[in-house]
Design a protein around this nucleic acid. Structure first.
Lengths: 302, 302
DNA sequence: GATGTCCATAGATAAATCGTATGGCTGAGA
DNA sequence: TCTCAGCCATACGATTTATCTATGGACATC
């Protein structure tokens, strides 16, 4: 014989209201229902909980001792269930997302701001890590979503959304390249280029684009940070190639960033999750939000 | 739609064992039962809790977040229910009892010691107060049992047990009264008597006994404490009249205590409870214990 | 491609729950 | 003392819920 939550709620109601009839009203059930519930509870506990008289209902001492425990248990449970309700209706939750540092700095902040306008109960846990770490965090369920570039073609990874982050050429105003109306890989190769370090995903993309165009431009300098590359460009050392999403470009008002007429100069942006894993409602909502959102510097690949 | 404790237990079992089949074994139910329980729970919460694959069952993130709450709630409840079980089987509990100070010092300590030999889980809350306070504490449910003398004939008071505490005469060895084989009220009245204070229940009994015998013995001294009366007797000031239950008599090895051949020299001892109130199992057991127990200085009035 | 493992589904049966109608007890008031 | 009102307990039929057995379907392994 086991006890039920309904029995516990019935017990608390009768104890607090001191009457089966009033408790029945309160719980929207008939009075005999409560009689049976309490009797079953007493049978299960093998304890008399109430002393009944036609005139009054009184807790026995063991009933009185038991009341606070049951009450606390029910309150705890109800507060958990209320939280659950908010989670299930996507009113509350933590969106755990791993992203490449460039996306974490450019794409995510505005998206999160917009999303939180409509979902004030959303909080975010953003991990800005390199591409392989994004995959690792997604695989180990430490994050719900991953925002990354590179290869994501794995059997345990599902792509929710794909876009392109265009790689642009950045040069000082008045630079000779500015006179071309269309800028191609060949044109770029004619100028000294400040290139990103070989381990960065940007460099992987540009190297690949030049290889496809059968060109081998020589880097005049290599930098790890985009900010450093821009400093070089400002100083007139050369031009550079940076993703459109890079916020750093805006920090240098004397520089111009322009589109390159070559589809290879773009890196893919993937929103991924672990395959066969259900997203929390709020994370799902954020994923949908990202998919719907038109980000100026991203090209949608639908 | 409401959730049930069984659903919660099913959820925890499946989550911890990572398998519907193993959880079903563990809970001694069939596997489809668990499938249905979990589905119902998910419907009630409007949340997917598990990602099912034919090869593995994994908690979703919301499921993972929910698990500790449910687990804690169930553990709390189980520990309460375990306590309840011990209480219901009279293995555990607090016996709350109000008693006249004389009974609290004489009758109760040995009874409690014997009772605790058989019921090691019993603890006691003893209030030693005057008779009217005993009634008050019983009426207000602050104690389960009352041990008192005097009048207990009230409609809201139930007598569980009645005995008599014999009033004995106490005198120094070799005192002239010692030569009588039977001691009557008349014999007592021939000697100077150290009497208890008029407000004590002992004095009420002896006054009444002498009045019934149409005697008016004059007190040579009045004392409030039994110990003081005994000191007077030891010093040869007179004889005194004390209840057989008085432990103080044993402290004076040069004194003798003897029965008085007059049924009026005894005070009633009542074990009472509030009428229409169920006793906790352990308090009930103690009341039964008191009723069964043969106390040397108490005469049972069955 | 066959097989085994595991979860989901379907249908039948047993159990529990609930509401209506009714009975029984107690205390207040005539 | 009697009657009545108020309140809880009981009985019974209807509905819902829980459970089991049998079986289907998906995926991984060999």
């Amino acid at each position: 014989m086991d006890i039920s939550l309904r029995q516990m709620r019935s017990f608390v109601a009768v104890a607090k209201l001191g009457s089966f009839t009033r408790a029945a009203e309160f719980l929207h059930v008939s009075q005999p229902t409560l009689t049976v519930q309490i009797r079953r509870l007493e049978e299960a506990l093998q304890l008399k909980l109430f002393d009944r008289n036609p005139r009054s209902v009184n807790l026995t001492r063991v009933g009185r001792d038991l009341l606070p425990s049951f009450e606390r248990t029910l309150q705890d449970l109800d507060s958990v269930l209320l939280d659950v309700k908010h989670v299930s209706t996507a009113q509350l939750g933590v969106v755990r997302i791993a992203a490449l540092p460039s996306f974490a700095a450019s794409l995510l902040p505005d998206s999160i701001r917009h999303f939180r306008k409509q979902n004030p109960g959303a909080s975010f846990a953003v991990k800005d890590v390199i591409a392989s770490a994004v995959l690792g965090l997604v695989r180990s369920d430490e994050v719900d979503l991953g925002l990354t570039g590179g290869n994501v073609d794995f059997p345990d990874i599902e792509v929710l959304f794909r876009a392109s982050d265009e790689i642009r050429v950045v040069y000082p105003k008045g630079h000779p390249i500015d006179r071309f109306s269309r800028i191609t890989a060949e044109r770029l190769a004619q100028f000294p280029i400040v290139m990103m370090d070989g381990r960065t995903s940007v460099r992987a993309v540009t190297d690949n684009a030049f290889r496809k165009a059968k060109l081998m431009p020589t880097p005049v300098t290599e930098t790890t940070q985009m900010m450093t590359a821009l400093g070089m460009v400002r100083a007139g050392i050369g031009i550079t190639l940076l993703p459109a999403s890079a916020r750093e470009i805006a920090a240098e008002p004397t520089l111009r960033a322009r589109h390159i007429s070559d589809p290879n100069f773009s890196r893919p942006v993937w929103l991924i999750k672990r395959k066969n894993r259900t997203l929390p409602p709020l994370s799902k909502a954020f994923a949908d939000h990202l998919s719907r959102e038109r980000v100026s510097f991203l090209k949608r690949d639908d």
